[in-house]
Simulated scan of single mutants.
Amino acid sequence: MEALDPLKLDLQRQVAALNAALGVHVVDGAVSRVTLLNSLSRLLAAPQCTLQIAKFFRPLLVDLTARWLLDIDVPEEARFVALALLIETHEEIFPILAEFLQRPSLARGPVAFVTKENAASLPAATLQPILLAGYPHCGVMYLAIHCYAFHANMPELRREEMQQQYLGELGLEDCEIDYGLDESGEPVTTDGWLLALTESNRILDKRQEIATTALPYMATATLAPEDICPRVANVQGVLLLRDSTAPAPTSALVMTPSLREPLQLLAAQYSLRLPTLLTSTQSAGKALLLAHLATQLHPTTASQLVVIHLADTSIDARSLVGSHVSSQTVPGKFEWKEGVLL
């Protein structure tokens, strides 16, 4: 497991492979490590480079995208499109996407800049990547219908009726959709009617590639801990998003060989947002392990752990999720009170 430490990735070899794949010298491997990571982060938002950088620098993808949360000179729209493209095959960056969508500029959604007055003047190439409606272009309208149907939990039959109303019979009219840029920067288009199948195949192929492609690592670290983005914690080789740039407080955990693998596995499960059952003999350090992980990810919060004693017979679903209770301020009114899990 130690060999998979992202800080040991062979950067120079991957930079050379990236330049060869793009067919042009876009990254200079002779610069400082921090400058290299910043350059890769900026290039990751370029449509023609996104997938290639994610391929060659996959172990550092959390770091490269976390840099977008700081004041880095990358267009907001480009970051949003890149995150949307990567999220299906790199679920570990979901916390970064979630925080990115909380930005004040996106409070009204990523397409709030479009109005009834300017919609017709915006090019389809601008609207399609962010899945916008309100533009008389078949591809954009197709995407808009699907987004609206998904958001409104619309039945498939109703969605098909809406498609027929606005786009006509299935497949009769060309429904060309911009599908990003290739490595040379040339636009790629696809048939909107086949978009779901195209995307499904792309995701399956990419996941298969990730599962079968080995990346080169060095025997010693090529990156120092201070080179990593301050919003990222390196937990035994697993990069996780932190909620602050503040340094983590001193942990009571004494790292021993027997704790390294459990902590790494726990961090990997957490990065994929998977429920995890942690078991051991009594007083083996389960709570200490969880507390250590919490302090690494939430350095400014005293405690992020909620302890629930399941042996308590008074616990039911309402105490965990929440329920309506009598208002303490307005007599005769019920208010929602969240449970300990929310």
Results as ranks from 00 to 15, higher is better:
residue 95 P to N: 06
residue 83 L to R: 06
residue 103 R to V: 01
residue 128 Q to G: 03
residue 194 L to Q: 14
residue 101 L to H: 01
residue 173 E to G: 00
residue 130 I to H: 04
residue 221 A to D: 15
residue 203 I to E: 02
residue 133 A to P: 10
residue 135 Y to T: 14
residue 131 L to W: 14
residue 217 Y to C: 11
residue 208 Q to R: 14
residue 118 N to L: 06
residue 156 E to V: 13
residue 106 L to W: 02
residue 164 Q to F: 01
residue 158 R to K: 12
residue 171 G to P: 02
residue 186 E to C: 02
residue 218 M to C: 15
residue 116 K to M: 00
residue 190 T to D: 01
residue 214 A to S: 14
residue 210 I to T: 09
residue 179 Y to I: 00
residue 148 Y to R: 11
residue 96 I to S: 04
residue 92 E to P: 05
residue 137 H to L: 13
residue 149 A to T: 06
residue 154 M to Q: 12
residue 214 A to P: 04
residue 144 A to R: 07
residue 93 I to C: 06
residue 148 Y to D: 06
residue 139 G to Y: 13
residue 208 Q to T: 13
residue 172 L to F: 04
residue 219 A to D: 15
residue 170 L to F: 10
residue 139 G to Q: 13
residue 135 Y to W: 10
residue 174 D to K: 07
residue 151 H to R: 14
residue 179 Y to D: 11
residue 122 L to A: 04
residue 165 Q to A: 11
residue 143 L to V: 11
residue 125 A to N: 03
residue 219 A to K: 15
residue 147 C to E: 14
residue 139 G to V: 14
residue 123 P to F: 06
residue 152 A to R: 14
residue 186 E to K: 07
residue 206 K to N: 10
residue 219 A to Y: 12
residue 111 V to K: 06
residue 124 A to N: 07
residue 159 R to F: 03
residue 175 C to T: 08
residue 149 A to Y: 05
residue 170 L to E: 11
residue 136 P to R: 08
residue 218 M to I: 09
residue 221 A to F: 09
residue 85 L to A: 15
residue 185 G to H: 07
residue 188 V to W: 00
residue 183 E to C: 03
residue 175 C to D: 05
residue 156 E to Q: 14
residue 163 Q to E: 15
residue 154 M to C: 12
residue 88 E to V: 00
residue 191 D to Y: 03
residue 154 M to K: 09
residue 86 L to I: 10
residue 183 E to H: 01
residue 132 L to F: 05
residue 144 A to H: 07
residue 153 N to M: 12
residue 97 L to S: 08
residue 119 A to W: 01
residue 88 E to A: 12
residue 189 T to S: 09
residue 112 A to G: 00
residue 178 D to G: 08
residue 82 A to P: 01
residue 186 E to H: 06
residue 220 T to K: 15
residue 179 Y to H: 08
residue 160 E to D: 15
residue 113 F to L: 01
residue 202 R to W: 06
residue 220 T to G: 13
residue 187 P to V: 01
residue 131 L to D: 10
residue 117 E to A: 09
residue 120 A to N: 03
residue 176 E to I: 09
residue 169 E to Q: 09
residue 198 T to F: 03
residue 220 T to M: 15
residue 108 R to E: 10
residue 215 L to V: 14
residue 110 P to D: 02
residue 149 A to C: 09
residue 84 A to W: 07
residue 169 E to A: 08
residue 207 R to F: 02
residue 121 S to T: 12
residue 140 V to A: 15
residue 164 Q to Y: 04
residue 102 Q to C: 08
residue 134 G to N: 04
residue 102 Q to F: 00
residue 190 T to S: 07
residue 153 N to S: 14
residue 87 I to N: 05
residue 121 S to R: 10
residue 125 A to T: 13
residue 156 E to P: 00
residue 214 A to C: 12
residue 202 R to C: 02
residue 130 I to T: 11
residue 153 N to Q: 15
residue 159 R to M: 14
residue 107 A to W: 00
residue 82 A to W: 02
residue 166 Y to N: 02
residue 213 T to Q: 11
residue 219 A to I: 08
residue 171 G to W: 00
residue 218 M to T: 15
residue 115 T to I: 01
residue 128 Q to I: 03
residue 127 L to C: 07
residue 165 Q to C: 04
residue 188 V to T: 04
residue 201 N to V: 11
residue 127 L to H: 06
residue 135 Y to M: 12
